[in-house]
């Protein structure tokens, strides 16, 4: 046991752990644009398509932070992001009214659906409107899984319960606190109903026994908008970069890309581009 082998062994152990280059820091900060957005835009794969296009066109480097809509908006309002792409109109309007976020522009929509077990114990399939469906679920006390995470989907669900005049509470109402995919999995295992966006449902379809029970009802539209961050929200906000991304999202070429997205994989588009329209003109 010569001291040499000892030192050699220690050195070998250390050099193995050494491959940490000093250039771990990202490129020049001014060229970074932080986009706070929702998990659904990322999980659908849309951003993987759009972000490189934007980066190539403008030279900005985008840092996409995908979190629930509640957190995405809160981060932007704190000035921790430069631009927000989210889908919770009622929540968005609060931030606009407070002046934290500016220049809300509609980008696209997709739609939510009520899905549930094939046996449909609450007879949701007979309902024509989403509010009616929720009343049937609550009335029959059949299990319902809520995202419970202040995401855009959760906010839409909460506003539907409010409109239906029901305060969801009790053993039948399960809050998953997780993303849409995990929530679908729970609903599937527990034979429960849930509200899901079409893109996530299609991505998980082959593993689910849940069927689409209600769709294409106007309150179930899922509208995405892009908003710029008020430079007064905090230090070091990349205002120009944020605006460039917002402009990019509503540009005609981008809208054309959105229109075609998903057709190849799912046989149907996942999002409908609506830049330039007003909320009242959408869907129906």
């Amino acid at each position: 046991m010569a001291a040499k082998t000892n030192r050699g062994a220690l050195l070998a152990a250390l050099t193995f752990l050494l491959p940490v280059p000093l250039d771990l820091r990202a490129a020049e900060p001014a060229k970074n644009t932080i986009l706070s957005t929702t998990t659904s835009t990322q999980d659908s794969g849309l951003l993987d398509l759009l972000v490189p296009l934007f980066e190539k066109k403008t030279g900005y480097r985008v840092k996409t932070i995908s979190v629930g809509t509640g957190q995405a908006l809160a981060l932007a309002a704190k000035g921790e992001a430069d631009v927000a792409l989210v889908h919770a109109p009622s929540l968005e309007k609060k931030y606009l009214a407070d002046g934290k976020l500016l220049n809300r522009r509609l980008v696209m929509y997709n739609d939510f659906m009520i899905v549930g077990p094939g046996a449909d114990p609450a007879k949701v399939k007979a309902a024509k409107r989403s509010l009616e469906a929720l009343k049937l679920i609550a009335g029959s006390g059949t299990r319902f899984v809520s995202r419970g995470d202040n995401s855009g989907t959760h906010n839409l669900e909460k506003s539907l319960w409010r409109q239906a005049g029901i305060e969801p509470r009790g053993a039948w109402y399960i809050e998953s606190g997780q993303g849409m995919g995990a929530t679908l999995g729970i609903a599937n295992d527990r034979n429960a109903y849930t509200i899901t966006d079409r893109a996530t449902y299609l991505a998980f379809r082959k593993r689910l026994a849940l069927g689409i029970l209600l769709e294409r009802d106007k309150p179930l539209l899922n509208i995405y908008s892009v908003m710029e961050v008020n430079p007064a929200n905090g230090p070091r906000i990349n205002v120009v970069g944020g605006k460039a991304f917002a402009d990019f999202m509503v540009a005609p070429q981008t809208q054309a890309v959105i229109k075609g997205f998903g057709v190849e994989k799912y046989g149907q588009p996942l999002f409908v581009p609506v830049a330039g329209k007003r909320e009242e003109e959408i869907g129906g």
Partner: peptide, 11 residues
Amino acid sequence: KISGGATLLSL
């Protein structure tokens, strides 16, 4: 790289 670097610094 990240975990190796962090481990090295922690040592």
